[in-house]
Design a protein around this nucleic acid. Structure first.
Lengths: 198, 198
DNA sequence: GAATATAATTAACAATGTTAATATTAAGTA
DNA sequence: TACTTAATATTAACATTGTTAATTATATTC
């Protein structure tokens, strides 16, 4: 008695595991079908029995990285009081995560999923990620500080854009040069955006 | 009597012209040595007599695009009064330019120049572009509205990051779907950032 | 006009994504 | 158990792209 869907799921898992290992290890430049397949212990053509193409495979990893990122952040901010203060802390941790894993950043924000046909779900997943991370805290802030929801939404959006912009500059332009300085700017800018709440 | 440097400069010009035509026409996906060389009327290997590699060629176009963009913006904002109001107008026109030419956007913000060895100058050129476009107006604003310079610098930086972030989201994630709506969000967000001045 | 330097072209190679053809393994049945 | 067929995996092959080497064409100089 065989269970085909389960087996296929396992196979996909092996390839995804391999992809994630490569991404976090060697980085994006090592991502190609032959490397991935070797890391998974299969031949490169086998991959095509389980994924439409290599991009589908790579973008299926987005979910896993988000879970990992969310877990990491949860630990980091567990002692920060709920509300705007924690929104700042989460945003900073979010940025720090991507700095730690540049390939994940590229995967999330740079690689074009546009070409990826039906993968708009992945785009939404990415677009809403920071907001989901901060959801409770926004609720709390709106309630506790009596903030207008439309105002909160604008600030939320601003935070989202700002975080992305800072990451793009830091990652692609090496600007500023060092991480510590970068995180200081991040803190300043996040504070500045949060000020628009009141 | 020949003038080698002049001739070489001309050759470089032909290839750069071809590259720019392709970028603005077919887009980034059509950029490869064979296409560029054909568009320039030469063989693909000839390119390597004038540029280290294809990326050097492409990034040499950054300058030209910036000039074009600056000229376009100048026309657009010529009736807007100097100062913060024009900073907003310039920022919006800057964003609109990149939406109009997605390949230029990719070239400026997405393509990694990191690998490009000694091309940090290009990175700086890009990083400072919006600030240079608004330079006079910032001077005017600081002077006319008696704004602290450190405060102005923070807002300037925020605007820079914000513009980049909005573009990344709109370009890569198709979010929001339509240009008009996007530009409304842009206006709102720019206004929000500019409020941090006072 | 022959010899040489310069520049451009074609040929060739390596890396990568993808598909087609082949081989291998597993499942089902007499 | 042995044979047939379906499934899965592998190797071979092809297309695209960047790059370099070998070759050909052009221009310069004596």
């Amino acid at each position: 008695m065989t269970n085909k869907p389960l087996q296929e799921e396992r196979m996909r898992g092996y390839f995804m595991q391999a992809t994630k290992e490569l991404l976090k290890g060697e980085g994006l430049k090592s991502i190609n079908v032959r490397n991935i397949a070797q890391q998974a212990g299969y031949s490169y053509a086998t991959l095509y029995n389980y994924f439409r193409d290599v991009r589908e495979l790579v973008f299926l990893c987005v979910n896993d990285f988000q879970e990992e990122c969310a877990a990491e952040i949860k630990v980091k901010v567990k002692d920060t009081p709920e509300g705007t203060e924690r929104i700042q802390a989460i945003t900073e941790a979010y940025i720090a995560y991507f700095v730690q894993y540049p390939s994940v950043f590229n995967l999330f924000f740079i690689e074009k999923l546009g070409d990826l046909g039906q993968k708009q779900p992945a785009a939404n997943l990415i677009y809403t990620f920071l907001n989901r991370l901060c959801e409770e805290d926004w609720e709390h802030a709106v309630w506790a500080q009596n903030i207008e929801r439309s105002r909160a939404d604008e600030t939320k959006t601003a935070l989202n854009y700002m975080a992305c912009g800072m990451l793009v500059y830091y990652m692609n332009r090496i600007q500023p040069a060092d991480f510590k300085e970068f995180m200081q700017i991040v803190r300043k800018q996040v504070t500045l955006v949060m000020k628009s709440l009141v």
